[in-house]
Design a protein around this nucleic acid. Structure first.
Length: 421
RNA sequence: GCCCCCAUCGACUAGCGGUCCAGGUCGCGGCCCUUUCAAGGCUGAAGCACGGGUUCGAAUCCCGUUGGGGGCACCA
């Protein structure tokens, strides 16, 4: 039987990174098996629904590249079907009315068990099972009724979800059996915690996909990182492309213990993926990010400056801080220029009529000037860097000066020399 | 309180009875490279929660303890 899995978020807000990890495992499994990945919006709780949430969730999934098969569906659209089944269970004596609601009659002897693909066999004594509400007194089905029903109707073969659903599972299995449906394979993946071991939340850092996107993370890096939270192909491999992930993924290697989200490791991994991009692709990503985040910088100049920072940043959001001096005026701190006056003047002189005005020639000219002043490269170049880039930390000086051009460089050098005097 | 789940370096993990005085990656320390910052190379410290079993042999299997987490809604 062909594999069919689903992601079933409730439209109550932005897509949480923990849900993305669960969605990723579903998606990886589907793609690995050549099956289908469906998107179902579980909106039976109309009171908590947020209007833009459905669009935001889809937008986030698209950005991540987690494509779903077929149109997305809404749980509430099958409200009438659920109601009909509830009535059938009622007349069959498998459910009963309780203050206007309909409750399912759970078996009270024996146990309900299943072989969880990630945790192994899990068993619940039936006497502990509560008679879950199938339909509210206003007629709307509850999640615990609609969800298993839809899994059956949609032909879902594997339900991969967060382990907070483990306690719901025995009830759902009994409901599926009561309607004569095929019980899917269940796999419960652990939640993701913050550094303190508590569930990941805002106070730990970014949590929604939108947050990570705005912070300048690459979707492929985020996916790579998330995949390794609770899953590993072996003990060695860490950097994997989307294709490798699909190729190597298997559910039986998903860990059953919870993992902590390590932002530092994510940063490192993002840097690795950033550096693996071709210069053209890196520039392209920068242009997109800058556009999304309110920077109106010319794409052509971004593309020319991008190679100078590609090895130096780990997130796209660091670009403005590193390369902003190419796009606007600088204000060097006078203290950082301290003692650099003579070298500034020497640099001015060395570059004024230098030909050709390229990085190699600039470097040779400036080294020569430094030698004549008896300065070590470190001492000599730092005031120039501050004058030209406005910062003590910058991309390569000579390449930066070449890109900036003679005119801008000289005027910044002179302004700084005046300030240092 | 009741039910369920989890437990290898600070973090993510490999390990599915001997090849492990436990390997990889992040982070941390040191060295090298170097015009700053990175990147890169080399290198160091750091772990099988505890107690019982089973076995010739246990990080690996069983039981218990402790510690974490989740659930017990006419939420999902």
């Amino acid at each position: 039987m062909a594999v069919r899995v689903r992601m079933a978020p409730s439209p109550t807000g932005l897509l949480h990174i923990g849900n993305v990890r669960t969605a990723l495992f579903n998606w990886l499994y589907a793609r690995h098996e050549g099956g289908e990945f469906r998107l179902r919006i579980e909106n039976t709780d109309t009171s908590r629904e947020v209007a833009e949430a459905v669009d935001q969730i889809q937008d986030s999934l698209r950005w991540l590249g987690l494509d779903w098969d077929g149109p997305h569906t809404f749980q509430l659209d099958r409200m009438d079907d659920c109601r009909r089944v509830a009535d059938e269970l009622l007349s069959a004596g498998k459910a009963y009315e309780d203050e206007g609601a309909i409750r399912f009659r759970m078996p009270d002897e024996g146990a309900t068990a299943w072989d969880d693909v990630v945790r192994g066999r899990i068993e619940y004594p039936n006497e502990k099972l509560h008679d879950v509400v199938l339909a509210r007194s206003d007629g709307r089905p509850t999640y615990n009724f609609a969800s298993p029903l839809e899994d059956v109707w949609d032909g879902i073969t594997h339900v991969i979800r967060g382990d907070d659903h483990i306690p719901n599972t025995p009830g759902q299995i009994n409901i599926i059996r009561a309607i004569g449906g095929d019980v899917p394979v269940y796999g419960h993946v652990p939640m993701i915690n913050g550094a303190d071991g508590k569930p990941l939340s805002k106070r730990h850092g970014s949590v929604s996909v939108q947050d990570f996107r705005a912070d300048g993370y690459l979707p492929e890096a985020l996916l790579n990182f998330l995949a390794l939270l609770g899953w590993a192909p072996d003990g060695e491999t860490t950097i994997m492309s989307r294709e490798e992930l699909v190729d190597r993924f298997s559910l039986d290697r998903v860990s059953s213990s919870p993992a902590q989200f390590d932002y530092q490791k994510l940063d490192w991994m993002n840097g690795v993926h950033l550096r693996e991009l071709s210069p053209e692709e890196f520039a392209h990503r920068l242009v997109l990010w800058l556009g999304e985040n309110g920077y109106d910088w010319p794409a052509e100049l971004v593309a020319r400056t991008a190679p100078l920072v590609q090895e130096k940043i780990s997130r796209l959001a660091e670009f403005p801080g590193f390369a902003g001096f190419f796009f606007g005026d600088v204000e060097p701190g006078a203290a950082d220029l301290d003692g650099g006056g003579p070298m500034l003047a020497a640099a001015d002189e060395a570059l004024a009529s230098l030909e050709p005005f390229d990085a190699a020639a600039i470097e040779a000219a400036l080294r020569d000037a430094a030698d004549r002043l008896g300065l070590k490269p470190r001492q000599a170049f730092q005031p120039i860097r501050v004058a030209v880039t406005g910062s003590k930390v910058s991309p390569g000086l000579f390449e930066s000066i070449e890109l900036l051009g003679r005119e801008t460089t000289l005027s910044r050098l002179r302004a700084a020399a005046d300030a240092a005097a």
